[in-house]
Amino acid sequence: MTQEESTESEKPAKSNLIVLDMAGTTVADGGLVERAFERAAEHLGVEPGSADHAAKLQYVRDTMGESKISVFRHLFGTEELARRANSAFEEAYGGLVDGGLVAPLPGARETIEELRADGRTVVLTTGFARVTQDAILDALGWRDLADLTLCPADAGGRGRPFPDMVLAAFLRTGAVADVRHTVVAGDTAYDMLSGSRAGAGIVAGVLTGAHDRAALTANGATHVLASIAGLPALLAQESGA
């Protein structure tokens, strides 16, 4: 092996698969998850202002990033009630989205465009059902922004904190040969757990959503950024560019 070949082989492999969360990471929803949950809970007879309502709402806050149907299974106990709650939630959230109450976080679109222009594959993931994810993408004009979009149903039904959506992105895109060359970014502890359990080499937390630096770091973040707009610079630094 020549010295030039040796130097080339020592360069870090480029992280070409980027898996990004939506709400709180690339999309600002302005508390719509909580508002939609409150409508869903009321639909199932949970009295607003009651101790039960407060406890359930706190659980929703604590589990931001998790598949919503999983949250409702925990809160309401039976599959029938969970599905009723989830349907009411999706309908309420969709109505809020249609009302123009979602927006891209500053620099999010530009970041995705920059990553793709640099030859990286970008996948957008969510804990919402496909119908809600599509409503958000349509509201933002993001249908063709990423290479692929995934919801829990696209990965066998298990959402975060399971690694399934990250691994589905790895398998379906073929963007990298080694899962360690995958980058996962999100705003919740469950995003961090999902990325670390999948074996991603970079698991970046962002401070624009549900959880703080301590929660992100405690659950597997390798880096914490002020916002997703800082991701291209981080990747350039990691690759030695």
Rank of each mutant, 00 (worst) to 15 (best):
L81I: 04
S15N: 14
M22L: 14
L75T: 03
T125V: 15
R130M: 12
H74G: 12
A23C: 11
G199K: 04
T63K: 00
E34T: 09
A177H: 10
P163Y: 08
V46L: 01
F76Y: 09
A41R: 01
G141V: 10
D29R: 07
T173V: 12
R35Q: 14
N219W: 02
K14R: 14
G195A: 11
D52M: 10
V131G: 06
E79R: 09
R83T: 05
E42M: 07
L167N: 05
L193Q: 13
C151R: 00
G30Q: 14
K68N: 04
S6Q: 15
A214Q: 15
V131M: 10
L145T: 11
N86T: 07
A51K: 15
V97P: 01
L115K: 04
R73F: 02
T7H: 13
P12W: 08
Y190P: 00
E114P: 05
L140N: 07
A189Q: 05
R61D: 14
Q133D: 07
Y59K: 10
A146V: 07
L225C: 12
A51S: 15
G199L: 09
L150Q: 03
E80Q: 13
H211N: 09
E238M: 11
A200R: 02
T208G: 05
V122W: 00
S15K: 14
D21Y: 04
N219Q: 13
K56E: 04
R180W: 11
R213D: 15
L171Y: 13
E38F: 00
T188F: 00
V206Y: 00
G24R: 00
L216F: 03
F76A: 03
I136Y: 03
G95C: 06
R160Y: 03
A153P: 03
R116I: 02
A168D: 04
L57N: 10
D147K: 08
A236T: 08
S9R: 14
H211S: 08
F170Y: 14
L81R: 10
L137I: 06
D164K: 07
T188G: 00
G201P: 06
R39L: 11
L231N: 02
E91W: 02
A13E: 15
E8K: 15
D147R: 08
E5V: 12
V123R: 01
Q3N: 12
A169D: 04
G99E: 15
R158W: 12
I228R: 01
M22I: 09
L171I: 08
